[in-house]
Amino acid sequence: MPFTLATWNINSVRLREGLVARLMEEEAPDILCLQECKSPVDKIPTEAFEALGYRWRVARGQKGYNGVAIFSKLPLEEAGADDHADLGHARHIAGRLENGVTIHNFYVPAGGDVPDREVNDKFGQKLDYLTSMRDAFHADRPAKSILVGDLNIAPREDDVWSHKQLLKVVSHTPVEVETLGQTQDAGAWVDVTRADIPEGQLYSWWSYRSPDWDKADKGRRLDHVWATPDIASAAHSSRVLRHVRGWEKPSDHAPVFATFDL
């Protein structure tokens, strides 16, 4: 059952309902995973999405911040929601397809502005969240699974516009990269995007602060698609829809796509 999956930090699903519907209509992924929905589950818009064929959904929500959701054209049942590091945040939801593939949708804490947990609690929460994910994957090694989401870390030197200038900037610091690597290794996750696109600068996020984000191109690859080794070889056609960042009143993230022949 081949299917195409997309992950997108939407930065308010209610504010950008029209953009979500546009992506669904123009690109038609079979499964769309959203992060930073900023809405209680019962307030997430669904009517327009259902009209476009997205009849199945699982979600966790909060008023005003966080929140994750999976919309699917394929039958999907909820398969858990973990509160890593006991933060009380809606940052994870899992769904299972009829073919047994589990899709994990994560929104890892951004970590604030100062990369020092002694003076910035948010940075500590980010590291603790990733460590909790790592420990969970060690305890219960995932299989036949896909992990997507805004992991808020750009791990490779070519995942950022300037490795040297961002070494002390949250999202690319050595401790974050190391902790994310440990989390990835714990589940033996394969970075599908980089398996498909192994070379070159690749970004999925551009700051709102840049007056001309496209020309300046100071991006970071914060959004990821991973898969367990048993199904990773079935993935192909990875792409970042950079042009979506240029839509009217956009999210600061662009959607990331991959297709799986399963």
Rank of each mutant, 00 (worst) to 15 (best):
R60M: 08
A48P: 06
D82E: 11
T193D: 10
A232N: 06
I10K: 08
T183G: 00
I31Q: 07
A94C: 07
A227K: 10
P211K: 11
R96C: 12
A81C: 13
K218C: 01
L23S: 07
A59G: 03
V192T: 08
I231C: 11
R57W: 11
K144P: 04
L202T: 04
S237W: 05
Q184M: 01
P250G: 09
L202P: 01
K63A: 13
A139I: 00
Y129T: 08
F123N: 08
G95K: 05
V240G: 14
E36I: 10
Q62A: 06
H253G: 11
G95C: 03
G100R: 10
P115A: 03
K63S: 12
V68P: 08
G100A: 10
D185E: 15
K218Q: 05
G80K: 00
R134P: 00
D135G: 15
L180K: 01
A154V: 06
S132A: 11
L76N: 06
D196T: 04
D116Y: 03
R141D: 04
V244S: 03
D217P: 03
K38E: 04
Y129K: 04
G67H: 15
G200E: 04
R16M: 02
Q125W: 13
D261L: 14
R245D: 07
N11Q: 15
D159A: 00
N11E: 14
N11M: 07
L262V: 13
E26W: 03
N99V: 15
D191E: 08
L167R: 15
L151S: 05
F49W: 09
D214L: 13
L130T: 00
E157V: 10
Q182W: 06
W205S: 03
R239Q: 15
P75W: 03
Q201A: 08
L180Q: 00
D191Y: 03
L166Y: 07
A79D: 15
H172M: 13
K43Q: 13
E47L: 02
S237D: 12
E17A: 13
E27R: 15
A48Y: 03
S72M: 10
F3G: 05
D140V: 04
D230Y: 05
E176A: 11
E98M: 11
Q35H: 04
L241Y: 15
R60C: 07
A188S: 12
W56A: 04
E77W: 14
G80L: 03
S12K: 13
P40R: 02
L222M: 02
T4D: 04
H253Q: 09
V108D: 06
Y203R: 02
A59L: 06
F260K: 07
W206K: 11
L202K: 06
W206I: 09
E78W: 08
V190L: 00
Y54W: 01
M133C: 12
N105G: 08
A186T: 01
V175D: 15
P155Q: 08
T7G: 07
L147E: 01
D217R: 09
L166W: 10
G80E: 02
S237C: 10
D128P: 02
L166I: 10
Q165T: 10
R220E: 05
K144G: 12
F257R: 15
